[in-house]
Amino acid sequence: MKINRRNFFKVMGATAVSGSSLAALPSDLTAWESKAPPDPYGCLVDLTRCVGCRKCEEACSQVNGLPAPERANCQCTIFEKKRRPDDKAFTVVNRYFTGKLDNFDKPLPTYAKVQCMHCQDPACVSACIVGALTKDETGSVRYDVSKCIGCRYCMVACPFEIPAYEYHDPITPRVMKCTFCYDRISKDGGVPGCATICPTEAITFGKRADLLRVAHKRLDENPGKYINHVYGEKEAGGTSWLYISSVPFEDVNLPALPDNPSPKLSETIQHSLFSYLWSPIVLFSTLGALMYKSNKSNPENSNGKRGTLEEKNITKGGA
C-alpha cells in the first residue's frame, strides 16, 4: 500500500474541514424529540361494553376490501382459539375468561378487539428502512406499498405484534395492518368502519385529547367498575387507540409496556453517533494519521505486498 503524500493531505484536509464544522453544532442536537402529531384522532374501546358480536370485523373487511371474516356469524366456537390480526383481517375480537364470575358463579367473558394501536411515536415508522410507514396528522399510521422492500423490520419492531405479511405472494407481498380507515377519517365527518357499526358503542371515535377526557370521566364516575388506568395513554409513549377495562389489561393480551416511546433508545444512539457523520469522520482521520505514521516509519515495507512479475513466474513454475 502506497500513500502518496500530496494526495493524503488533500483528502485529510477535506475530512478535517468537515470535522471542524461539527464544533459549531448546537449541543442539544442529539436530544430525542417526539414526532407525534399535536392533535390526532383516536378511538376509545370500552371492554366492559363489548359483547363479542364481531360486527367490527365484518365492517372492517368490507371497508378495506378484505375477505369476509372467518365464520362471520359465529360468536361461540370461533373464540376457542386465540386469533391475531393477519394479512386477511386487520382486526379480530377474542374472548377471555379472567376469573370474573356472574351472579350465578358462572365465569364471565371479556371480549377484546385488537388492531394496530396507531402509536404516537410508532416503532414501525422509526424502523422502516425506506420510510414506507408514516404517522399522519390524523393519527393514522399509513403504509406506502410503493416504497416497501419487504424487509419486515416493522414487524420485528412493533411492540403490539400487529403488522402481518403476505407470505404466500412470491413477488409483490404487502405488509398488512389496520389503516385507521384513513380514506374516511381524513374527510370531514368520516368515522372508521368498526366504530360506525358497533351496536354497543364500545368503540368511540374522536380527537385523542377528548377521548382521554371521556375515559377518565368514565373511570371517575364509576368507582370500582374499571381498573383505574387508561391503556394507551402512556404505553410505548402513547397510542391513538385507547382501552378501558374492568379486568387487568395483561389478561386480555394488552401487554405491559414501558412509557418510553419504543424508538427513543435506538434513535438516540443512532443520532448521537451518526449525526453529520461525525464519528465516521473522526475515525477516518484517526486511522489516516495512524496509517501515515506507520508508513513513514517503515517505508521499505509499504511496497512489499506486490511481487514482481519475475518472482511470480518463478513461483508459478515451481508449484
Binding site: 424502523a127 422502516c128 428502512i129 425506506v130 420510510g131 414506507a132 422492500i149 443512532q270
Partner: peptide, 13 residues
C-alpha cells in the same frame, strides 16, 4: 429503493 428513500431514524437503513 433505500438508496432513494432515506429513513435516517432506521438502524436498518
Amino acid at each position: 429503493k433505500p438508496m432513494f428513500n432515506w429513513n435516517t431514524n432506521s438502524v436498518l437503513f
